[in-house]
Amino acid sequence: MSETAKPTAKPAATPRQKAHQLLQAVRGEINKALIGQQAVVDDVLCALLAGGHVLIEGVPGLGKTLLVRALARVFGGDFSRIQFTPDLMPSDVTGHAVYDLKSEAFHLRKGPVFTHLLLADEINRAPAKTQAALLEVMQERQVTLEGEALPVPQPFMVLATQNPIEQEGTYPLPEAELDRFMLKLAIDYPEAADEVNLVRQVTRSAQADALEVSQLRTLLQPKDVQILQKITSELPVDEQVLDYAVRLARATRTWPGLLLGAGPRASIALVRCGRAHAMLRGGEFVTPDDIKACAAAVLRHRVRLSAELEIAGQNLEHVIAQLLEQVDAPRL
């Protein structure tokens, strides 16, 4: 992960530029469907490039599900959606063995996780045991059914959504589950001008009040995504930048306002996400700005605010912003 290139005066490699162009096209296509949420779209694409999973949090009606549908549309791979409900069982997610009367044998029925893009809608509505069914597939990219480890197709990405205001009848995600999400994105209300555009577009649509994704072009195939991920993972990261990412993650562990700091997965996610960010902006290498840009999304679900600050009404975003202000940028 830490490669230090020798100082050269060579021009940039062509595949990267191609990849960048492709990504720009994808970004433009998704932004056609999801209006006024450019930052969230960028972050989701970052996660896709970095091979991570995303947890999207926002009040109802901001287009969380639409974003995933648009991504699935632009991305030609398989897409499946699980609506998490309180009575959902782990086998409904992963799959199970059924007895076939004709052949008098058990057959494995694969669950909806065997797909490229998995939308776990309202993930906190299912109890912890069902949420835990995703643990293995998110980390290992495989599902163990009847003692048999079955790999899921590559690339594999989980996009989960949850609603921050309704707390009744929901089950907060456990730390282990949260840690497996590379990014937690907070989707906010669009700007006034964007909202005007959005309303104009939706009211023109044939469907009742949904934005259509059917007119979006399919630009990516699963294989392309794998190539993009490979190119991304090869972006050079300077030692200082790597050190900055690790220092950021470590700072959360001793930060006075935080009860729980981020683990090593956060440092890893920071660097991978920084690479993806650099890729998305068309950079040839990772700068401290790339790391800093995705630090909030990477850290926000991995730390927990101390009780004193919570009582004092302090915001987690505010504390993370303070932390980013205090940790020194890379030194050379």
Binding site: T4, A5, K6, P7, T8, A9, K10, P236, D238, Q240, V241, E284, F285, V286, T287, P288, P330, L332
Partner: peptide, 12 residues
């Protein structure tokens, strides 16, 4: 400066 420091690319 960024190109040289983080990308190890020398300017002309």
């Amino acid at each position: 400066w960024i190109n040289l420091a983080y990308g190890h690319r020398l300017p002309a």
